[in-house]
């Protein structure tokens, strides 16, 4: 078997174990249950909302899916490597003849698959709920969910990086910072531009370039209002997510490679 084939099989083995562990975690079901409740509650909002009530319901539903996706990405991501080390399961894993980068990639893909299934299930549920109340949602909703997966791809990479050297508590705080700042990256840029202080402008511009721009993955508003999104924008978002994720995972691999398991 070629080296690439062997590496793929090992990565897949670690990924499927990670996926299996995640879907057998009762906490995951609690979070998904919360999302289902949120989706169902959005139906009730129709009665109390102002303005275009259907759009409010659609917006709240999509927002709920994004929120829960973000929570799961952070919650499971920050414990991804840490749990292996803390529970000492890493001893039998890292002593196998596979390089550590393959373990890390396997763990990452396993979590990514868990998120994809979770977003998929909630999107399906959203389609049924909205379809029942307002008719089938447009293609924009599925594009928005695709973009959400790209955002989670990036957030999970950061959570994985932090989990290679920090406890879940610290890693959660770091990932949350990236998540929040990432969503306000455009505002940071605008804020800096508006300032007349060159040092402040330079600082905000540097920050804008360093932190991931997660705002571009929020197409929920476009989906709710039926606004078309240019294909070039989507392509750029895909390339940005792939490139940024590769860089962050590369850093995670470097840290993980050098770790001692005491």
């Amino acid at each position: 078997m070629s080296a690439l084939g062997l590496a793929s099989r090992r990565i897949f083995a670690v990924a499927s174990n990670t996926f299996r562990e995640a879907i057998r975690d009762k906490v995951l079901y609690s979070i998904i249950f919360f999302a289902v409740l949120l989706l169902l509650a959005s139906l009730g909002m129709r009665e109390v909302a102002l303005g275009d009530r259907d759009k409010v319901v659609r917006g709240v539903g999509l927002g709920g899916i994004s929120l829960v996706g973000g929570i799961i990405a952070i919650f499971l991501g920050v414990g991804l490597v840490w749990k292996e080390i803390e529970r000492k399961t890493i001893y039998t894993l890292a002593s196998k003849p596979l390089p550590r980068w393959q373990i890390l990639l396997g763990k990452y893909f396993g979590l990514w698959a868990t998120l994809a299934v979770e977003v998929g299930i909630l999107t399906l549920l959203y389609t049924v709920v909205i379809g029942y109340q307002q008719g089938l949602p447009g293609a924009g909703v599925y594009l928005a969910m695709g973009m959400l997966m790209l955002e989670l791809t990036l957030v999970t990479a950061f959570a994985t990086l932090f989990s290679t050297f920090a406890s879940p508590m610290s890693a959660s705080a770091y990932t949350l910072c990236v998540y929040v700042i990432g969503h306000f990256a455009d505002d940071l840029y605008t804020f800096g531009k508006a300032s007349e202080n060159p040092a402040f402008q330079s600082l905000t511009l540097t920050l804008y370039r360093i932190v991931p721009n997660l705002g571009m993955y929020n197409l929920r508003s476009e989906a709710v209002h039926g606004i078309a999104v240019p294909g070039s924008e989507v392509m750029w978002a895909v390339a940005y997510a792939v490139g940024y994720t590769a860089a962050v995972l590369g850093a995670a691999m470097l840290v993980f490679e050098r770790r001692d398991f005491k």
Partner: peptide, 21 residues
């Protein structure tokens, strides 16, 4: 080199394994 462990079976000091499996 991880390849050094290709023909090795290892049991660590205390048995910590995946409880979900």
């Amino acid at each position: 080199d991880p390849a050094s462990r290709a023909r090795v079976g290892f049991l660590p000091e205390r048995p910590y394994f995946y409880e979900h499996l």
